[in-house]
Design a protein around this nucleic acid. Structure first.
Lengths: 183, 183
DNA sequence: TCCATACATGTCTAGTATTACATGTTTATT
DNA sequence: AATAAACATGTAATACTAGACATGTATGGA
């Protein structure tokens, strides 16, 4: 599948970047649907270069610090566009360790369960707030032809995902609470 | 983290099972939040046995076919319960290759984009229908003390997740369609 | 001038996961 | 009697990912 390959090609297709810059993008703008650490990015760039998908120029920052600025090649661009059009089977539902825990939750007393749920809710709420903050940059739907449109779509998706998760957590808590009241 | 370890221990804590049976559970009941293929399960069972978390009895099905029925040990049960109570940091948002694709979608014309979105929607709708079918087994919320309660919670979560995904796909399509109308 | 933070690039190891390889039995249907 | 599908258990090769290890430069503030 090599999703990382296409993620990198897609970004380089916007503009030439260094490995370090790619790394920052993965851990900020893209982090709601893809991410990679520098220990994955540097080897992948090396491989893409060997495959002729990207080239690089060595530049000097300051006095001696070398940086490699990578640029997508024609072949890389073709591969990227081909990948973009591919219809795909939906992925398996992603693994979720918290849901695994809740699946076995009847071994916990209700209080412990609610505590775990509250903890999750707090963290998801934090994430949602931060996403909503980012959304303020988009007072209206960006033009479909710009790359800001893609940003906007996945940001909307991330917000909806967090809201839905919080709804689920609330529902779980209310079930547990109504069980306590029955006693 | 070893989530697979605890998933297996949790299931064996319900009842003794063979590797083959575990494999079926992972690919059916648990598949909305965890899964594993037999090539992961058999080595993990071997390891858990070496660690003293599970024991097994060899049984004969039919004339000569040997099957190993695994049982959780006291130590395994303790480890499992300890894991169950652990508060945890929420995981990173799961990677999603389709959202990655949508992020770069402005390179696609609107028709192609809608086609991809429709394809996703169809598949998620199918999954949602099948989940709703499963939900028919639960005409009411099961008792909190039973393991059916956990089943029910994660099933509700899976349904909400699919509904939300479909909402997002619809929203994406409507943005694309309104862009076509403008022309 | 010192120090902290950010910039910048890489490798290595361990853990996790997927797919293919490999083998054989049992049961139900035709 | 033949065949297909399900039962049953494993290993090997490959891929992916995270975290630690390793090294050094540049910049801005105290």
């Amino acid at each position: 599948m090599r999703a990382l390959k296409y993620a990198i090609l897609g970004l380089l297709n916007r503009e030439s970047m260094t490995g370090y810059e790619l790394s920052k993008v993965f851990n900020h703008e893209l982090k709601e649907f893809w991410y990679a650490s520098h220990s994955q990015i540097y080897p992948e760039l090396k491989k893409l270069n060997e495959e002729g998908e990207v080239t690089f120029d060595v530049q000097i920052s300051g006095d001696i610090l070398e940086t490699k600025r990578y640029t997508i090649t024609e072949s890389g661009r073709n591969d990227f566009i081909k990948w973009l059009y591919k219809d795909e089977t939906i992925q398996k539902t992603p693994k979720d360790p918290f849901r695994l825990r809740m699946y076995f939750a009847h071994h916990l007393d209700c209080k412990a369960r609610i505590h775990l749920l509250e903890n999750q809710k707090m963290q998801h709420t934090k994430r949602l707030n931060s996403l909503n903050k980012t959304m303020e940059q988009y007072p209206e739907v960006p033009n479909v032809e710009t790359d800001r449109f893609g940003d906007f779509l996945v940001l909307r998706g991330a917000i909806m995902r967090e809201e839905q998760t919080i709804n689920w957590l609330n529902e779980c808590m209310s079930y547990c609470e109504s069980a306590i009241e029955k006693i």
